[in-house]
Each structure stands twice: as structure tokens, then as C-alpha cells.
Design a protein around this nucleic acid. Structure first.
Lengths: 160, 160
DNA sequence: TCTCATTAAATCGGTCACAATTGAAAGCGC
DNA sequence: GCGCTTTCAATTGTGACCGATTTAATGAGA
């Protein structure tokens, strides 16, 4: 499509086929770009809820299992406290979650939803519907792709 | 798995199946996690080359087409100057690329590889080989997944 | 020629992401 | 009790990302 360089090409070198370092041949770049593309698709919808994408993921965890330790959330999202702590503080500031040291073990901080955080779930459902319709894929296709990716993730996480 | 086509049982489902906001049911999270997992797999290998993952992507573009404008690189990687400028400056600092205003249009900055930048390509080839072997997938499987993702990216980028 | 709009890159502010370190709390072995 | 190690969250420093704005150069029109 837009492969043409506007300038006069000084080197008409023949394109090597299946260049192993060509961007278009990279699964890793496809993952990178797809991840960014979907974040970008979510942004305008999540903006209306006052959420960023990582914040939405954290809430999704909490909507399923409320009152988790920071490390539990981290285990589900594959993130550490260095990433989560500041994001959780922002969610606390916007009034969607509470953070409290556990009495039985003061090292742990329990994250739980406020009523506002709970209430946001309903609006998040419509966000998800909008995204699914944007994807232009059947539920089966979505599920198949998701499973392929989950297999890949498992492979990479085992022998890291 | 046991998604019943039949009518809903008299009792409301004890566990809601196919929770639409459950993390494990999200394609978007699978993409997010897979993207992070592959970045993590690259990190120890790229560390040996003194590169970060985005820097590696930029070099991959330049190994295919040298001497591009900032916006050309941005178009290929789906990134803007706000992201690229600082990364390109770091690549300049480490001596892998040069940045120079174009004489015929002083608004444009041309990015080109230094000899060191060119030389790094050989070592990058072995990085790619290591990653491919880690994936535990055939070339055909990798290509198929890549194509699925590229289709998804195209869909999302059209109707943004 | 002199505006005026357009374009390209850079800048700025805010948010993630992660490695490495810190500090506090808990558990242990004696 | 008393050290020693482990565990958990927080902190720090670096490097992306992106939206919005700014600055400089170009091009078009009156």
C-alpha cells in the first residue's frame, strides 16, 4: 500500500525475500502493534469512565474477586508492586477503591472496591460490547485467538 | 465449555459462566499479557546488545530501509514524534544512529544508521533465532498467528 | 511581498512498566 | 527472647507511550 517512499530511492537494492528482521515478518511486532491498537480503541470509551486501560484491568480483577492483596492483583495481571502501587493510589484518589493494611498481617495491603467502584461495572459492560463489535469477529474467532495467545503466554512464562 | 443452549435453569447460576468481564475471557487482556511476556523474553537477550525493545524495533525498520524521516519510522511502528524523539536521541547517544535535518526541508529530521548500527544487525539475527526457538511453534503456526493479528490491527486502525 | 494555514519535530505533563533497593512486619531456629 | 531470613508493599530511577501544545519551516493565496 504505502510502501512507496516519496523520495527518489538512491539504492534500488533488490528486496530480500522473507527478511528475518523485516518488521512485517515479526510475530513480536504484530503483538506489540495489536496491543497498542486495542488500547487505542479502548481509550475514548474508557475516557468517559475516567479510567485508563491498566486501571480498567485492575477493576476487572476486583469485579470478579473483591478484597485482594496487591500481590494477588499482581499475580493475575503479571505486574509487580512497583507498577501497581501508584496506579492503585490513583484509583483510591478517584474514589473507586480502598486500600487498607490487614490487621492479621500488617505487611499486606488489601484493595477493595468502593460503592462507586462496584457501580462502574455496569458501564464497563457496555464498553466491552462496543469493543467486541469493533473487532468484527465472531465469538468463536475471538475465543480461538484468545486461546492461542494464552498458550503462547504460558509457554513464555514457563521457561522465562 | 458447558455453555448450555437450553433455557436458563430455574436457579440463577451459582457461578456465572462466561462472565463478560472476567479477565480470562478477555481477548484484550490476552493481547496485553502476550505483548508483555514477549517483551520480557526479549529483555535478557537485548540487554546484551544494550538495546531496549522499542529501540530494537526502530533499528529493525532502519535495517530494512535506512535514512528515514522520524515520521516514516512513526508510520511503520504506529508511534508519534513525542514517543520517538527521546528514543532516537538515546540511540544517537549510544552511537547507533545519526540525526540530521534535511537540507531540502529543514522541518524534517533524517535518521540513519551509523556503522555500529549496521553492525548490530548480525547479532540481532541470533536474538531472533533464540526467541523463535523459545516460542515452541512451527514457522507456519507463527505465520498464521501473525496474520490473524495483522488482520485485527488493520480492522482496528481503519475505523478508529 | 506579506499574511495565513499547514506540516514536522520537539516539548511538556501525566501514566505505565520494570529492575533494584528499602523498610517494616512476620516467621524461624535456637 | 533474640537474631536471621523471608515476605510484602513502597520507593527510586530509567525508559517508554500519548495527548496537547509549541516552535520552526514551508507553501499557498491575496
Amino acid at each position: 500500500m504505502n510502501v512507496a517512499i516519496s523520495q527518489v530511492a538512491p539504492t534500488p537494492a533488490p528486496i530480500e525475500m522473507a527478511d528475518p528482521l523485516c518488521l512485517d515478518n515479526q510475530l513480536c511486532f504484530a503483538l506489540y502493534a495489536a496491543s497498542h491498537a486495542i488500547k487505542k480503541a479502548y481509550r475514548p470509551l474508557l475516557d468517559q469512565l475516567g479510567l485508563t486501560y491498566p486501571q480498567y484491568l485492575i477493576l476487572m480483577v476486583l469485579w470478579t474477586e473483591n478484597a485482594l492483596k496487591v500481590s494477588d492483583i499482581g499475580q493475575r495481571l503479571h505486574l509487580d508492586s512497583g507498577t501497581l502501587t501508584p496506579v492503585l493510589k490513583r484509583l483510591e484518589t478517584t474514589g473507586l477503591v480502598k486500600r487498607a493494611r490487614r490487621l492479621q498481617d500488617e505487611r499486606e495491603v488489601e484493595i477493595s472496591l468502593t460503592p462507586e467502584g462496584h457501580a462502574l461495572r455496569a458501564r464497563a459492560l457496555s464498553v466491552r460490547r462496543d469493543i467486541v463489535s469493533l473487532l468484527n469477529m465472531s465469538d468463536a474467532q475471538i475465543g480461538a485467538l484468545r486461546n492461542e495467545l494464552n498458550t503462547l503466554i504460558a509457554t513464555l512464562n514457563v521457561d522465562s
